Structures are given as structure tokens and as C-alpha cells.
Amino acid sequence: MKRFALIGAAGFVAERHIKAIKETENELVCAMDTFDVMGRMDSYFPEAEFFTSEKELVQFLQQAKPKGKPVDYISICSPNNLHIKHIELALKNGCDVICEKPLVIDSKDLEKIKECEAESGKKVNAILQLRHHPAILKLKKDIEQSDKDFFDIDLNYITSRGKWYFKSWKGDFEKSGGIATNIGIHFFDMLTWIFGKVQKSNVSVYEATKASGELVLEKAKVNWFLSLDANDLPEVATKASKRTYRSIKVDGREIEFSNGFTDLHTVTYQKILSGNGFGVEDARESLDLIALIRSIR
């Protein structure tokens, strides 16, 4: 059984991490968030310590070692701009890391992380959960076995958000990295993982609520569209009263991958705990891409 700490415990995605820790039969011993209402933890780890400051967390980590109960992993679910700071905190305190997307906003920070990894002897694991989705794994296998050398891809991802979004850190470009970083990173990672490195990128639209462009990879041309605006939902989604729509078409053929998202964090944790997690270099291509998209928006 591994002992976990979690930073950013009040965030939406944090519950998937807490659930994954529970389902992999490990223990969350402490959590930290500046938001201090954490009733969700009672359903999973009611005995876990809870802190509202990094100082308290670091004191706990330092006191746990002499007691023979060191924290093995720190899971990071804090706002995107704080990831690099919290990764360094974890490594400097002798903990391996599991970090939500994006690993960092600025891909230049990856070198800093690698230096900290070397100094600490610990590893940073990136959450790239679409690489574990059965439909995406099948697509990767089909592409590898195909006689074709080049494909046409259409990616559409609309996940409508209310007014709260734009008053939170997610709607702050400096804190989230903008729409391509905040909601596009997993899809860009998945596409570059399957279809190869970026050759060219054009951005047609880049606004607070939506972005679109054309991407040329080694094995594909990708037309992509991302939106937070419910008005962009297609009729098939609105008729079903759905506020999220995901679509990937490969040469006009729809790849169905709408289901199975909620369990991917547990699968990711299983892989990491068995020594098969994705590291810094695995995250680099998509992080370089979103940096390029931001620079030419």
C-alpha cells in the first residue's frame, strides 16, 4: 500500500484521483486546498489530514519521514499555472508525482522538472488518460496496421460551460493557458501519439470561448475545433440534452469514444504503480504544440 498526498483537492478532477487511490487499494493520508469545504473526502478517506496551506503540507511531509511513514506520491490537481511549483515541492520532499494535465503551461519548464527528477531520484508521471481508452488504443493499432500512409482527421470537442467558468482560474489565460491548453491538451496528445510529430500548425480562430485550426502531423492532416459555447453543440447533442460533444473522424469514419472516460484515471494509476506511467518526455510533443498554437493565435 502506497501513501498519497493530494494538492488541489477541491477541484473537479481531484475526485477522480481520490477514487483512483481508493480503487487501487492505496491510502490518501493528507490533502491540501485553499478551499476549505471538503466533504467529498468523507466518502473515500475520512481519516486523511487536511491542510489549507503549502506550509502545513510541507511540515507534514517532513515530520512523516522520521516516523517511518513517508508519503510515497503526491497527486497534483491544482490550477495549471501552479503545477510546476507543486511538482518541485513534491520532488524536493522525496515524493514521486502524478500530475494532471497539462503537466506545465510552458514547455520550457520541462527541463527544470527533469533537473529536479535527477536531483531527487523521483519520477513525475503525467496524466495522459486517453492513451488508455480502449477505442483510442484500437485506433492506434488500426493506423499502425493500415496500408495508408496519410489520413484526414476532423476533431470537434464542445464542452459547454456556465458563467462561473470565466470568473474562475480556468477562464484566466495566464492561469489556465487558454482553451487549447485547458480542454485541448488530451486530444492533441492523443493525435500526436497516434499520427506522429507536428509538421505545421495554422490557427484560424483563438478566442476565450473557442478555437480552431489546421494541423499537419507526420501521418495526418487535422482540422480541429474546440468550444465552451453551448450554441456550438450539434443537434444530435441538444436533442439528447447533452452539454458535451466529442467527435473524431478518420477519413470520414466516426471513432466512437464517448463512453469510458470516468474510469481512465484508475487505469492510469494502475499503470503508474506498476512502473508503466507516462513521463516528462511523453508529454513534450503536445505541450510544444499548444505553446505554438498560443504563440500564433
Results as ranks from 00 to 15, higher is better:
residue 161 R to M: 12
residue 215 L to V: 01
residue 145 Q to A: 14
residue 226 L to M: 06
residue 126 A to M: 09
residue 146 S to E: 09
residue 198 V to N: 10
residue 156 N to C: 13
residue 119 E to L: 10
residue 236 V to E: 15
residue 204 S to N: 15
residue 199 Q to Y: 05
residue 219 K to L: 03
residue 168 S to G: 10
residue 132 H to Y: 15
residue 123 K to I: 10
residue 245 Y to C: 01
residue 209 T to Q: 14
residue 214 E to W: 13
residue 153 I to M: 04
residue 146 S to K: 11
residue 180 A to Y: 05
residue 228 L to E: 03
residue 183 I to A: 05
residue 162 G to V: 07
residue 247 S to C: 13
residue 242 K to P: 00
residue 220 A to N: 06
residue 126 A to Y: 07
residue 215 L to P: 00
residue 224 W to P: 01
residue 131 R to N: 09
residue 219 K to F: 06
residue 162 G to P: 15
residue 239 K to C: 04
residue 124 V to W: 01
residue 127 I to H: 04
residue 131 R to K: 11
residue 138 K to G: 07
residue 139 L to A: 06
residue 242 K to A: 11
residue 167 K to E: 14
residue 219 K to E: 06
residue 223 N to F: 11
residue 236 V to A: 14
residue 218 E to F: 07
residue 159 T to H: 12
residue 160 S to V: 05
residue 197 K to P: 02
residue 140 K to G: 07
residue 224 W to N: 01
residue 159 T to N: 13
residue 213 G to L: 10
residue 248 I to G: 00
residue 188 F to S: 00
residue 178 G to Y: 02
residue 238 T to C: 09
residue 160 S to K: 08
residue 121 G to E: 08
residue 211 A to P: 08
residue 145 Q to K: 15
residue 196 G to T: 06
residue 157 Y to T: 01
residue 150 F to Y: 14
residue 203 V to L: 12
residue 244 T to L: 12
